[in-house]
Amino acid sequence: MLKAFYSSATGMRAQELLIDNTANNLANVNTTGFKKKHINFADLIYDTSTPPGAASANGQIKPIGLQIGTGVRAVGTTSIFSQGSPQETGIDTHMAIEGDGFFKVQKGDTVAYTRDGTFTTNDQGQVVNSDGYLLDPQITIPPTATDISISPNGVVSYRQNGVSTTGASIQLSRFANPAGLQNLGSNLFAETAASGAETLGEPGTDGYGQLRQRFIEGANVEVVSELVSLITAQRAYEINSRAIRAGDEMLSSASNLVR
Rank of each mutant, 00 (worst) to 15 (best):
L18V: 05
A4F: 00
K107P: 00
P142N: 07
Q182E: 12
L257M: 12
G117W: 12
N28C: 04
A74K: 08
T93Y: 05
S225F: 02
A194I: 03
A254S: 13
I141S: 07
Q106F: 07
L172A: 08
G196K: 02
Y133H: 15
Y6R: 09
S79D: 08
G101F: 07
I68F: 13
T31I: 06
A254W: 03
K107Y: 08
N161P: 01
V221G: 08
D147Q: 13
A112I: 02
Q60E: 14
I80N: 09
L18A: 15
I150L: 09
T144D: 15
E198Y: 02
G65S: 02
H94M: 11
D100P: 01
S149I: 14
A57S: 13
I216M: 05
T140M: 10
M95P: 02
P203G: 11
R212F: 02
S79A: 13
P137W: 05
N187Y: 02
L184A: 06
I45D: 13
S195H: 01
T232P: 00
I68S: 14
L181D: 06
I45Y: 12
F175C: 05
K3V: 06
K62L: 15
N220Q: 07
N58F: 09
T50N: 10
S49G: 10
F41V: 01
A9C: 01
D100H: 11
P52K: 05
T114V: 04
